[in-house]
Design a binder for these strands. Sequence first.
DNA 1: CGCGTCAGAATTGTCGACAATCGACGATGA
DNA 2: TCATCGTCGATTGTCGACAATTCTGACGCG
Lengths: 233, 233
Amino acid sequence: MSIASFLDAVPKSTLRAQIAERLRAAILAGDIPPGAPLVETALSESFDVSRGPLREALRQLIEEGLVVTVPYTGTHVAALSVEDVREIFSLRTALEIFAIEQVWERRDDRFRAELVRRNDALVATIDAGDDRASIETELAFHGLVYEASGHRLLQRAWASLRGRLQLYWAAHHRAHGRRGPRRDSHDSYIAALLGDDLAAVRAEIADHMRRGVETTERFLNTLEPLAKRGGRS
Amino acid sequence: MSIASFLDAVPKSTLRAQIAERLRAAILAGDIPPGAPLVETALSESFDVSRGPLREALRQLIEEGLVVTVPYTGTHVAALSVEDVREIFSLRTALEIFAIEQVWERRDDRFRAELVRRNDALVATIDAGDDRASIETELAFHGLVYEASGHRLLQRAWASLRGRLQLYWAAHHRAHGRRGPRRDSHDSYIAALLGDDLAAVRAEIADHMRRGVETTERFLNTLEPLAKRGGRS
DNA sequence: CGCGTCAGAATTGTCGACAATCGACGATGA
DNA sequence: TCATCGTCGATTGTCGACAATTCTGACGCG
């Protein structure tokens, strides 16, 4: 029926899921910048669907923190504030430490091998200078900890945080150009994870997050002006 | 317009919000038991609204983990498994410890006073033997830690966990009758929180959650049969 | 010149009908 | 008897039109 399903290689599922996926990708890629209005009628036309599925897709993105809406007034791409970013990193610290504790309890041997593999992939993209790919491989690298925890609720929490992180990085990339993850920070991170000292791992994760906030904090205030209206999730 | 808004004392807002609120209340009160089917057409009739807002309300409850749906097939009230409950308590341990750390960093004097006040309210309902009220005051008591953290993302995470907790307690209450929170467990909990030793607070929270799981774990397997289909969130 | 008021437009909210899909049941043939 | 296939009922998915609300900007009044 829909032309869109032929134009793009979205195999098949409900329209709601397809629209949500494509809209999310557009937002996280920075194609639709933070603060930009998302008008339902316009979007439904450009995606060639009715407003029903589109609204439901928007609701989902609202839950993910990528979109903000005000009843009867308007919908916009979320704009993160400085405090939002601090919250993301601080909560992520707690979650990631909890995740690694779960992993250690499970003693899954495949974890270390996969960790090394994903780290290699991450290092490769960093060395190649591919900023966008670096962000993706870095998320996959950290995501392994949550996957290996076997904790479904924790994985949901991580997914929620990951979306907001991507939104932040997209805005960061737009504002300052190429500036992906750094090698040295991850070298010490993976070194701690491969070691045997859980306390050291906890400290390293906290340090890792602290570095993440510190090295980007000076750029954060330049993002603020984008948060005209709302910005809350 | 809608008759429903006159029958019940839901002041005014979007229908989606009203329906979500009423459905959530019905589920958490146990009026609609875990595993029960939620047919959109039937619900839209009984609430006297069209299926549009009702579907969006269902989507929200799905996000909250209270409802499960399979495309083109059916929607049901979520049924928690034993593993789900374990995950809820373990993640809650990590979040609550993180929350109390945030509270300590803020050094808000009003926190202790409000904590004592809510503890009194909790003790009053427990002594009165009011099971449902005890659950509510206990949630309000623990919720204070998250509110006082000033961490909005953390509060969202807590809201997500709280809904699932209520669902669990509702099922528990249905299966085994009156069995609310216990005084002794909370006496040591608040005692630690009012003290000055953060390490002791961490340990007490972990113990508190462990007690919560242990004292209920023997009943958990009796809940399992309810989880016929899905049960995942 | 400032300020309240009030159309008009823009946007989201809601509705009722139709289409697509899935699961179960029974017919049919080997 | 059993396996297979088709049909039917139930449920969710999708659509287009209409209603309610909010924002904006122009206009008149003091």
